[in-house]
Amino acid sequence: MASLMIGIVGSAQILKPVKWSYGAKKVSETEAIVFLRATIDSGWHVYSQHVKEGGPIPTNFTFDKSADYSLDGKTVEPRPTTRMEKVFGMNVSYFERSVIFQQKVKLKKGSATVTGKLGYMTCNDKECLPPDDIKFSIPIN
């Protein structure tokens, strides 16, 4: 666990209120949990995976298919903050400060590298940055 959150990933944007970092933990010989953490600057929001159509774009994860592992269930997230957004006329769920998404995987061999991409967007009360896609590659040893 000590070296869990190494590798801070960023793209070319200068304004970077959200930083993603990754980690993995083996829970048994054949099972592991992959962690995808967003560290969010004060005042900014990252949205839940479960925002309905017609509002901010939900955070989303796409995992590549692999012979080394298979996904075990959906990507889970902690309980978000939900507020009625008048401008969208609907409830919007989001995270502040930091959030860890977790994906269980079944391993077909001792080690694997989980790859894929995540999509997210971020806003504060004044402005939004456009949706962004980030590729990730998370080793499990």
Binding site: M1, A2, S98
Partner: peptide
């Protein structure tokens, strides 16, 4: 609290201490 630490970090420190 400004959100810069998570339970996972804390668990990590505890694990490190045990090691």
């Amino acid at each position: 609290f400004n959100g810069d630490v998570t339970q996972m970090d804390i668990d990590g420190f505890i694990e490190k201490a045990a090691g």
